[in-house]
């Protein structure tokens, strides 16, 4: 992606005028995002020549990317750790605690069973429980990054979050599969 300077010298937090931390004020993020898009969105320059429209598209694209990143707890943590120069090793570090791996297998089995039984209420219960556990993990992650600045532990929490996101995706796919 090639964007002109205003965006690129700033990281996503700076772009929205937010303090660089895992805990963020999501209402403020949304407000700043909207204020920025109100300036840079391509609709604002649709009557202008092509060069200007391209510039607007690139700025709006970056604003969207930055917003999507900061809005998602997982993406935000990943991005923040990358700013700190921490390698999360998501691709190559699969050494997870045994109890976590066991619970992942149990989740998978439960989801696939609910799908086979076409049991929507079972899926809903699984989804609610997953959400609850995800929130808990995010709360612990916040402490690791912002308070303790224990980035190795934070990286492990991010890897766990990624696992849980995959379960959420599987639940989503199971709904779609049942709901033909």
């Amino acid at each position: 992606m090639q964007l002109a300077s205003f965006d690129f010298q700033q990281n996503h937090f700076q772009l929205f005028g937010l303090a660089q931390s895992y805990r963020i004020d999501t209402a403020q993020l949304e407000q700043q995002y909207r204020a920025l898009q109100a300036l840079v969105h391509p609709d604002k320059s649709a009557h202008l020549p092509d060069a200007e429209q391209r510039l607007a598209m690139q700025r709006a694209t970056l604003a969207n990317e930055a917003y999507q990143t900061l809005r998602s707890p997982l993406l935000r943590a990943r991005y923040l750790l990358s700013l700190y120069g921490v390698d999360i090793q998501e691709e190559n570090n699969n050494v997870m605690p045994l109890d976590f791996l066991t619970s992942q297998m149990e989740w998978r089995e439960a989801v696939s069973e609910a799908q086979q039984e076409r049991d929507v209420s079972a899926l809903e219960k699984l989804e609610a429980r997953l959400q609850h556990e995800t929130r808990e993990l995010e709360a612990r992650l916040a402490v690791k990054i912002d308070t303790e600045k224990n980035y190795a532990a934070a990286a492990e929490a991010v890897r766990k979050l990624r696992f849980m996101e995959r379960i959420a995706e599987e639940i989503h796919a199971a709904y779609d599969a049942i709901d033909v």
């Binding site: 002109a4 300077s5 205003f6 929205f16 005028g17 407000q31 700043q32 909207r34 204020a35 920025l36 109100a38 300036l39 200007e52 510039l55």
Partner: peptide, 21 residues
């Protein structure tokens, strides 16, 4: 344009909110 944009963006994001604008 870039300079004007920077000026404008920084003024908007300098703590103003949408309703003020």
């Amino acid at each position: 344009a870039q300079k004007r944009m920077d000026k404008s963006v920084s003024s908007v994001l300098a703590g103003k909110n949408i309703s003020e604008l």
